[in-house]
Nucleic acid binder design. Sequence first.
DNA 1: GCTTCTATACTTAGACC
DNA 2: TGGTCTAAGTATAGAAG
Lengths: 208, 208
Amino acid sequence: MAMQVAAPSRRRPSLGRQKIEIRRIESEEARQVCFSKRRAGFFKKASELSILCSADVAAVVFSPAGKAYSFGHPSVECLLERFLPDSSSGAAARVRRGANNNGGGGMVGELNRQYGELRAMVEAHKARRERADEKIEMERAAGRWLPMDADVRRMSPEELMAFGTGLMAVQAAVSARADQMLRDALLIGRRPPTTTTAGFGFFHMPHY
Amino acid sequence: MAMQVAAPSRRRPSLGRQKIEIRRIESEEARQVCFSKRRAGFFKKASELSILCSADVAAVVFSPAGKAYSFGHPSVECLLERFLPDSSSGAAARVRRGANNNGGGGMVGELNRQYGELRAMVEAHKARRERADEKIEMERAAGRWLPMDADVRRMSPEELMAFGTGLMAVQAAVSARADQMLRDALLIGRRPPTTTTAGFGFFHMPHY
DNA sequence: GCTTCTATACTTAGACC
DNA sequence: TGGTCTAAGTATAGAAG
């Protein structure tokens, strides 16, 4: 019943949840906080989905800071193996174990499983990504074939799908050509395990 | 202000969201509906997490009916391929192993069922793959941008490198566009092209 | 099996610890 | 980094199509 006449503004220390756009959070700190919260929520959703619907769910998340987190019911190893293309099998095995430990309904408080080797890998990945950004300009000059972002944005779902498929084919051709040149230049057999990645990222398309 | 005297109960066609326990939904129908809804929500969360926090996120979900769904930024398809090698024995063994390790939840009985679903999934994936191959022609028509294999073979190392870099940028654009469509679809509740997106692999280039 | 509608239950942005 | 609190934005159970 008592009314706050003197300091009505103090009654609202929080404005509550604000609406936000789904776009990269610029503030590093805010991004980190958001990541922690949403990661927890994300894994919780994964857990609920698997339990409520008896579905198999696996999820892997790499924080912007370089840590790896995972959830899996009944297993997430397949996902992790994909993320460890050029690492030793030892790292893969360890990560796999950790992932399984927090699978199922466990969820508890922490899915925090970090590995030094993973961290190194992620750093390499990030470096690769940055290098890629720098090259975007150069790309335009040589790519008389490639469409502009605007073109891509204009594509219909069907077109995008078709284009994506074509992209994959071209990727294969480029990859093959690169291998060929590598062999010609070095006059050796291929060594995929050690040489690997020049800095080109992956192509991905989510499906529904 | 007319009053509903005769049928007051009609005023509440819905009780709104009810609280539920996080445990397997017994009703097969209800479970299916729940799966559809939550799967969409789950992927949306994954998308938001990756965008808001610049995190790498990958998720795979196998429906109780045996269908596979996935989301990944920047990639997951490759993971699925690992999970679904053409030799079903490998996948089967791996899944079984993973499942047993995690058997602490009394899900043992479920495992056999899930195993069966996996087989169905493998077939679905194969079909999808073939379909993708068939589309490569269509892509040529729609893809007025993409070069022919011959063009790629004719490129100099420098050109190839530049082109590869450009390719990567386009991949990013396509990926972003696809993510956008996913978000729009989920937001609007409209059905996107469905099914077809599974077969896109990753691009890799050895370095000199 | 996926969508729509409605009334809630649940999640989380922002500020602080 | 992870926990707390508030208020508001979202996700979704249930019912029906």
